[in-house]
Design a protein around this nucleic acid. Structure first.
Lengths: 332, 332
DNA sequence: TTGTAAGCGTTATCAC
DNA sequence: GTGATAACGCTTACAA
């Protein structure tokens, strides 16, 4: 069933049907109503492919996924998507996944792809700011919002939690419990959020006059193993440390293992705070004190912002989604 | 840049370019080569939208997602997708996510959507066999493969692990450790896999002459809380139980909590086995003995089968992906 | 072997 | 207000 069938049945031209359906003003109120009624009766739906071909704009948004590499952050993706969909499905968008993996040799360039399908907008989520795909997308003119990254370009939306404030809270908690020799296991250096979290860590220390000690900051690469190794070396080098703030829960697991390897107890000898509050953070022993990110909310807001950008309601902006410091047992 | 530009530059008609690009035999070897060379030089890519409009077949495959409801199975989705993509991206398909949630009122019917976009194929993953969307899709004629479900219809692919064998192994392990009063916390009744796992549990018992006791099987609904409640009631009712086989790791967490609530030790008083081997299964205390599902592999195989179905190489079939029984500490 | 031209199902531009 | 009609970029009979 095509628009032609509807036109015949309604006794008008296809042009009129199209206009009635697309809310053009040069259609009489009666015909619009009549056409719509018939459309409903017939169960007609315009073919989005044909429509895209001529309008050069689809209702598909792309979700750029570069974190298949991040084997450890699996559940986060789902929550983003879940938030995305609760907002976007009702607005009539479809979502296409654009996997970005240096392993997978895509024949199509990323920007090419956006143009091919005339994507309405794109949500990017990739930790690495220097990623080729990120750069490509950034140079496109499609509405786009970034998750966990910021862009220097105007008009690019970005949504995340206030990583610096969150880190400051976490470290301040340590300080309030009397800790002064506090270390930080940071994430990958090329990730936007890593630097920000280090900043928060540093700010918290300096706000109470504790000098920032660069050798207390080690890189756990957002992985459990690297975090274990980094923490292990750290504890050897600086046995005076009594607290470790980790930039992710996964790394916190590696760090906890390292601490135990050194025969130390958690939190009595070394207190630990994680980041993310993944689903199992409360299940480990001891339950992890951590910063909860509302991943669902981040996805939701990203979709909302993108929609506003697409519809021209508002330009992209920077949005902080509320976070929450969750006290359990690993930090005393 | 369109096919026309290529045609002009190559000094041939658009039809010839199209034929050269689509491997028609009625193009001379030389022109095909020349056209392709020019295409490469110009960086031309055919517009998939236009192509879909006339061919009535796209290179988009749909991934039906009904598990946003399953808040607990978050990381599994990512692994499926990851497997899917490692196979499918190189084959030139794109992936569209079709969220299916009774909460989200979709305007479009599911079958409608498949037709609208002329999806090349669909991968369905929904636990509930009576799901409206599942039925809709099942009645479509698009190539489709199911994950964790089987279809009575011929030509529908399905991939999963051998749930019955896996359950049998798990329960047999209990038996080999001397347990005889073994309970089972099952998953949602409307899920295909639930019944199969119960069957495996039962088969293992009966194979050594232990009578199947229906009151030893309780329903944990695949959730931690329901599993806790179910196990709590079970332990009250049948304190003689010494081992519990859980149909998911998440439920195992609830069960472990229930066991401890009753002042019992794991695995000394009550041994526990989970199912899935999610990322954190080895991190809990005690580390969970469980059945590892290769979710990545399942996604990979589903994509492979779908591709073969689309290209007509082979019809859909039923495929078991290997699983692995992982012994840690929760089962003694 | 190649080119012409008629679609595919829409929307957009004009006349009417 | 409404309706022809020409796009949109491609594939595919059918002619040449």
């Amino acid at each position: 069933m095509t628009i032609k069938d509807v036109a015949i049945r309604a006794g008008v031209s296809v042009a009129t049907v199209s206009k009635a359906l697309n809310n053009y003003r040069d259609v009489s109120v009666e015909t619009r109503a009549r056409v719509r009624k018939i459309v409903r009766e017939m169960g007609y739906r315009p073919n989005p492919i044909a429509s895209t071909l001529v309008k050069k704009e689809s209702s598909i948004i792309g979700f750029v996924l570069s974190s298949f590499q991040e084997k450890q952050r699996t559940s986060i993706l789902t929550e983003w998507l879940s938030g995305l969909f609760t907002n976007i499905a009702t607005l009539g968008y479809e979502v296409m996944i654009l996997p970005v993996d240096t392993q997978i040799q895509r024949k199509k360039s990323f920007a090419q792809f956006i143009r091919d399908y005339h994507l309405a907008g794109v949500i990017l989520q990739g930790l690495r700011i220097d990623d080729r795909y990120y750069v490509e997308a950034a140079s496109s003119d499609t509405p786009r919002v970034l998750i966990d990254m910021v862009s220097d370009r105007p008009g690019v939306g970005s949504v995340m939690i206030d990583n610096e404030a969150a880190s400051r809270e976490a470290v301040s908690y340590f300080i309030s419990r009397g800790h002064t020799r506090i270390a930080h296991v940071s994430g990958r250096a090329d990730a936007w959020i890593s630097a920000t979290r280090v900043n928060g860590y540093r700010a918290a220390l300096e706000s109470v006059g504790i000098e920032f000690n660069p050798s207390y900051v080690v890189n756990g690469e957002f992985g459990e193993e690297p975090a274990f190794a980094a923490a292990d070396a750290l504890l050897h080098r600086c046995p005076e440390i009594t607290a470790i703030f980790c930039a992710s829960d996964v790394m916190a697991m590696g760090v906890m293992r390292a601490v135990r390897t050194h025969g130390l107890r958690i939190p009595d000898d070394v207190a630990i705070i994680g980041f993310d509050d993944v689903e199992w953070a409360r299940m480990v022993t001891p339950p992890l004190t951590t910063v909860r990110q509302d991943f669902h909310g981040i996805g939701y807001e990203a979709a909302r912002m993108l929609h506003r950008m697409i519809s021209g309601t508002s330009p992209g902006s920077k949005l902080y989604v509320p976070h929450e410091f969750v006290i359990r047992e690993s930090a005393g």
